[in-house]
């Protein structure tokens, strides 16, 4: 499919988009918590993919490329937006269904709190956490995607989890 899409087959490219849209949009949405911005960023990433296809060999290569580029675009976006007025993360509505269509067994309030807290982490730590729990990658794989040392990944994961744990604890005590 990658070869066909790279050779200008638009149907193959559309199939490639459909196959990977939940990955790209999921990373953007979980990172930015804004549907409009997440969709625009995801579209931009796929347009960029279209130009980069001649350099990509396989589906695995495409998936890896999409993860890296999406997260870097998210990090850039967060850094750019830092100085602009912000909307409270708690005020943002939840978007659409998860990939499998079910909401799962987790407490919806707790899940929402985890998403909000994740989105409040520094951009790099957020990217590491999303690759670990959305994409279920191991630290060496995360290091490869983000091109950072494995030890940095491990320490960021450790710090982020400790931070989330303490904030969740506070939330529980408050409720």
């Amino acid at each position: 499919m990658v070869r066909a899409a790279a050779s200008g087959d638009r149907d193959a490219f559309a199939a490639l988009v459909r196959q990977n849209q939940s990955l790209v949009f999921g990373l953007a949405w979980n990172s930015l918590r804004n549907i409009a911005i997440a969709e625009e960023l995801a579209q931009d990433v796929f347009l960029e993919l279209y130009s980069a296809l001649p350099d990509l060999e396989s589906n695995a290569h495409v998936v890896n490329w999409l993860r890296r580029v999406t997260l870097h675009r998210c990090i850039d976006h967060v850094r750019r937006e830092r100085n602009r007025p912000k909307v409270g993360l708690d005020e943002i509505a939840e978007p659409m269904a998860a990939e499998n269509g079910s909401e799962g067994d987790a407490d919806p309030f707790l899940s929402q709190r985890v998403r909000v807290l994740t989105a409040s982490l520094p951009p790099r730590a957020r990217a590491v956490l999303l690759l670990r729990y959305q994409e279920e990658l191991d630290p060496p794989e995360i290091a490869e995607v983000l091109r950072i040392p494995v030890n940095t990944v491990k320490s960021q994961l450790h710090r982020s989890l400790a931070l989330l744990r303490s904030k969740l604890q506070r939330t529980r005590v408050a409720t």
Binding site: Q43, N100, S111, V114
Partner: peptide, 27 residues
């Protein structure tokens, strides 16, 4: 349980309907 909660909360998410068509329209 903590890891399960994170996996559950940070799942992949489908974009709004017609996403792929909108991407294709911009190609």
């Amino acid at each position: 349980e903590e890891e399960d909660l994170l996996r559950e909360s940070l799942r992949r998410v489908q974009p709004p309907d017609g996403f792929a068509d909108r991407v294709m329209a911009r190609l």
